[in-house]
Each structure stands twice: as structure tokens, then as C-alpha cells.
Design a protein around this nucleic acid. Structure first.
Lengths: 356, 356
DNA sequence: TTGAAAGCGCTACCAG
DNA sequence: CTGGTAGCGCTTTCAA
């Protein structure tokens, strides 16, 4: 029913091994034999059985990706670029969502581990390293993206999250905001670091950190629009109301802005808003959203590159850490007529049409 | 180095077969033996080798997904729901993007075919059936989503695209539009059918189809925002300008709306716009976008259900076709003060806060 | 340049 | 209820 190498070998009166070698571009096959084999292979539309090959070689040519939410544009973009790069080398991506649930993430990682994938790429929502030691014990290489864990020396690709917080907050300060709030993300590295950046920028400007101005969203990357609205509801009840807001990410910012606009708050006049992610729809929102670009595409590409480097080396190479520089993209949500640095904003604003 | 069933068997003084049976919940194993095996398995954190299992059973527990663009919210949502449902039954999803390129799609399908996946799920951008006959010859079951092909009797899950066009166009007519334009998608079933619906709704209302009012975008689901802007540029140069616009999908509509707004066109006063997809950010756009919901999530779930049905049946079941009913979600981009049917719009408008 | 033997780790089939 | 025998389709190592 299904064709095997054996069949082709019999057809051609050569041995099965010859076929195998031709198919893997093994050098020591005569040109004529090679042609004959290739011709027959094409004619029969034969493809070697991956499972059999995997069994012998121990390689599946499969890379696993675990993210909180495939629908989130950031992770979707990472998945896309990752799969594009891996494909060039014959690897495919197998995807899995953790729904920002640490337990589910562990289950998923275990399932993928059982499949003996060649590498795992993980945007983890876990706060402990146990699972990763577990992965290491199975000798499966892995690359963390977006989120890193303290005390874990692993491959990592992400953005400088403290700088994200600094750029965003400093921008709000630059345009004249005096009371800057922050809707922060979950208690994992990006959330923590962006908040640190926020605090540091405030401190540098001699401004006080006011706890009431910091609203926490437990789930930072799923169901975010509603979370943003809820956070904004709290902020609007504060006295005095904040006049600047840095959101952990753009979906949160979107929810927050909608709520504010629906309640008569003018953006940016009453409240300037900066998000993070520079998503493709940012410039099409009710108020085009200033954001910090975290180079989602590049994160996927670099994670793929690291994965391939591991896959191509005999010995596992030393863990590599790649921290990308975030970039402010100013749009209308922080376009104050009165602020200083108008020229700077205008310059940065040029980015607007290039972004996406 | 890596543990095998053989090792556990030796440990426990039973045969390898016993282990295998316990791990697959085979009934004929004594309770005591089963407990002992399970305990040791857990202790060693042993997982059976998938490649070896696949080789014997001929099943990979892998489902392939081929879509034009993983970043497109529609396909991202399909991928997400698909993977969620499949996971419940132990299947994983392996993803691949065709970039809306028929040749690339063929290459990808062939790669996935070589991996002998258990099922393929495809949103095809091809216009010919050859590749699908090819798939059938390999005995790989497949499910088409979103786009179907004429003359192909295959499993299909999608939306009634003609009705999409009718609902959108009729809505524009209802609110009083007299000159309704259409930015149409690629020449595959959704694009063609939505356009047919558009024409039919116009005809039913006794309105003439004006060719100039129909702008074609070759690539309907990638790089759409710019495409929408280009199309709108053409439309604004027409005399008389259209006062209503139905766009093939929401990203196109977003690009078109941005361009129009940037050129002084008021939406909905000068131009009412309806898109399709009901994407999660539709209600956060510069002008919240009326759209036709195509039940992306449900499409993924149903495709998964069909795939599982195939996977669970000995003989391949008869191809199943599932056509979902689209639904109008009215928002501000079609909110005319002067139109009739205000009450209907208001009623439909209730959907606004439920959607997503 | 070609090929034979051995075996990857598991499951199916049938005998005890 | 338990276990032996075969073999899935391929690659690897080494001999010819």
C-alpha cells in the first residue's frame, strides 16, 4: 500500500541502502545510480517515513512552541517568524497555548517533552525554575522568549523591559505629565521590569511613586481588554486623577483607553497613554496609541536562530542571552500641544508610517 | 541514557509487553501489576517514545494546519481553538503559513504530507484541485476551512459567504446608502461569494451594480491594511463618490477607513463602512467598525471535531460540509441618524458588548 | 562505490 | 492475565 525504500530498491535492482543514501545526499553514490533512483522516487512521489527516520536518528525535526495565547498579536507574530525561519531548515513548529496558567503550561511542556521534540521555545508564565530543570534532565534544549526567570541560566531572547518602562514613562514626563499611573502586568519578568523602569524614570525626574497609581492585572496577556477597562475604572476614581498612563501592553491600553473615552476623558488632553507592543492596529485605534516597540518579529527570528545553532552543534553550546533594545513610537495618544520636545516627538513620529 | 520500556520491565521483573499494556490502559493487566508499573513509571518520569509508537501504529497524533497568515486574527483564532480542542484528545497542531501563495502552499502541503500527519486542515489559496487529489492519493484525510474549491467533495467548515455579502450590503442599503462600493478579496470562494452576495443584495433593492465601485485586492488576507488604503484612494477619486462601502474583511476595512478619515471623509456621515470578521479590535478603532461575524472560533472547533471524527473511525466517513450562518454586528461606522431601521440597529447593537 | 547486518523502541498477534 | 515472536521503515557501522 505505502511505498517503502525496499520497494524502490527492488524495482531498480539496487539495495535499499543505496536509496537511503541518495535521499540523504550521501556523497558516495555514482551519478548514474543517483539519477535512476531520483527519477523513480519522483515518479512514485515517494517520501521517506519520518517516524522511522526519527526512531533511528533520535531527531524529529520538530520544534515546540509554548505561549500564553496564540491570538495575542505579539505571540502570533513570534510564532509566524519562528516558523518561517525554522522551515528553511526543514523544521516545523508545533504549537501549544498555556492560557497564562502555570499548571497548564507544565502539563503542556510535559506532553511536548514526551514527543521528544528537538527544541522547545517557551514564553513561560511560571515563576519557579523546577520545570526547566526537568526539561534539562530530559536533555531537550530550550529557548525562553519574552519572559526570563531569575536564577535560570538558559537561552533567552527578549527586550530590555526595564528600558521599556523607562522610555514610556520618560516620554510621558517629557510631554508634561505630572501624575503618571501604571497598569502593570503579571508578576513575571516583563511585568516586574517594566514597572521597575517606570519607577526609575519617575525617580530620575524627582517624582514620587504613588502606590494608588499602580494597578495590577494578574493575567497580563489574556483577556486583556476587559482588564484594561477595569483598571481604568479604578484610576478614574482616584483623586487627583492621573494625567499620564503607561500600560504593560497594548491590549490593556486599548481596553483602558476605550473605557476612559466612553467616560468623557479626553486623550491625550486629559490623559496621555503609552502602551507596549506596537501592534499592527495601534495606529488605527480611536486614539492612535503611542507604544514601545519590542521587535516581536525579531524575537521570533532570533529564537529560531538560537534553536538552529543548538540543533546544528554536536555539543550543546553555552546558553545565549539576547536582549533587544525597545523603541518608542509616538502617536496621538501622547501628542500634547503644550509639551516640550515637540521636535523630538515629530521626529520619532516619522516612524509612524513605517511601523508595520 | 534514555529509559526504555525494556529497562522498566527488567527492573520490575515483568515483561516489556506488560509495561506497554499498562501504559495504554489495556484491560488485561492485574491491578497489582499495574500499580507497580505505574509507580515505577512515575518515579523514573518515563514517557514512551512517540516515534517508535508512530512507526508501529502509523499514527503521529499530529494534525497539520496550513493557513495564509498566522498573524491574521481570523486564522490565529482558528489555530487557537483548533489546538485547544485537539489537545483534549492528545493531538497536537503543527502550523505552516502559505503567505497566500499557491505555490508555497503546495510545497508546504507536500512537506506535511511527507510527515504522514494524521490529518491536514487547510485554508487554501489555490484555485485548482490537483493538490487535493494528491493528498487523497496519499490517504491523508483533510478538512478545508474558510475557503472551498469548486468540484471538490471534501470536508469543509466555513461561513455562508454569499450571506455575508448580502447582510453587509443590505445593512448599508437599510441605513440609506445609495452608492455602495465593494473592496473585494482574492478570487477564491469567500471573495467570490461575498461579491455575489453584494451584487444580489443590490439587485434585490433594485440598485445597479457599477463596476467602478468594485475594487479588487489580490491578496486578501496578507498585507491588507495598505491594500485597503490603496483601494480607498481609488474610490475617493470616483465621481460621484460612494456613500457606502462593504469590505471583504476587517483589516482591509481598517486600512480603507484610515485613508478616508485622513483625507477628510467623515465616517459614517459621508461614507458608511462594513467589514467582515468581527475582529477583537473592531470596537476600538478610530470609528468602531460594523462587521459580519464569521464565527472564527467555531470554525476551528468544528474543524477539530470533524478531524477527530475521521481519526476515530476505521473507514473514512463521508465528507462533511458545515456552513455557519454569519451575523451582522452594527457599530458606529454604519450609525446613520437619518436611516430607517434605527430600532433594528439598536437591537443588533446590543451585541456590541458581547462580541469578544 | 555498494551492500549486509544490526537494531532504534515500540505494538500487534497469537500462544500459553 | 501474561509473554514471546515479528516486524514497523529507516539509518548506522563496517565489510566487501
Amino acid at each position: 500500500m505505502n511505498i517503502r525504500m525496499k520497494d524502490i530498491a527492488k524495482d531498480l535492482g539496487v539495495s535499499l541502502i543505496t536509496i537511503s543514501k541518495v535521499l540523504r545526499n550521501h556523497p558516495d553514490i555514482g551519478d548514474e545510480t543517483r539519477e535512476r533512483v531520483l527519477a523513480r522516487v519522483k515518479e512514485l512521489d515517494y517520501r521517506p517515513n519520518f517516524a522511522a527516520r526519527s526512531l533511528v536518528t533520535g531527531r524529529s525535526y520538530l520544534v515546540g512552541l509554548v505561549v500564553p495565547d496564540l491570538l495575542h498579536p505579539f505571540f502570533a507574530e513570534v510564532a509566524k517568524s519562528l516558523s518561517e525561519v525554522l522551515r528553511q531548515s526543514g523544521y516545523y513548529l508545533i504549537v501549544s497555548s498555556s492560557d497564562e496558567d502555570p499548571d497548564l503550561e507544565e502539563v503542556e511542556i510535559n506532553h511536548l517533552l514526551a514527543r521528544r521534540l528537538d527544541t522547545l521555545i517557551i514564553a513561560s508564565c511560571r515563576t519557579t525554575v523546577d520545570v526547566f530543570f526537568h526539561i534539562e534532565k530530559q536533555d531537550t534544549p530550550y529557548v525562553l522568549i519574552d519572559r526570563c526567570l531569575p536564577g535560570l541560566s538558559a537561552n533567552f531572547v527578549g527586550v530590555d523591559d526595564e528600558l521599556v518602562g523607562i522610555l514610556a514613562t520618560r516620554h510621558l514626563i517629557d510631554i508634561g505629565c505630572k501624575k503618571i499611573a501604571h497598569i502593570c502586568g503579571p508578576e513575571i519578568s516583563p511585568g516586574i521590569r517594566r514597572m521597575e523602569g517606570y519607577k526609575r524614570a519617575l525617580a530620575e525626574a524627582g517624582m514620587k511613586v504613588i502606590d494608588d497609581y499602580i494597578i495590577t492585572q494578574r493575567k497580563g496577556d489574556v483577556g486583556t481588554k476587559q482588564g484594561g477597562a477595569e483598571a481604568m475604572h479604578k484610576l478614574l476614581n482616584l483623586e487627583p486623577r492621573p494625567d499620564g498612563l503607561f500600560c504593560f501592553n497594548d491590549p490593556l491600553a486599548m481596553g483602558a483607553m476605550n473605557y476612559a473615552l466612553d467616560h468623557g476623558v479626553r486623550i491625550p488632553e486629559d490623559l496621555a497613554v503609552v502602551g507596549c507592543g506596537n501592534l499592527h492596529y495601534d495606529d488605527s485605534l480611536r486614539v492612535p496609541l503611542s507604544s514601545i516597540d519590542q521587535h516581536s518579529r525579531k524575537i521570533g527570528e532570533e529564537a529560531a536562530r538560537i534553536a538552529l545553532r543548538i540543533l546544528n552543534s554536536k555539543m550543546p553550546p553555552k546558553p545565549e542571552t539576547l536582549v533587544l533594545q525597545p523603541e518608542l513610537i509616538a502617536r496621538e495618544s501622547t501628542q500634547r500641544r503644550t509639551g516640550k520636545n515637540i521636535s523630538k516627538k515629530a521626529r520619532v513620529g516619522v516612524k509612524r508610517n513605517q511601523s508595520r
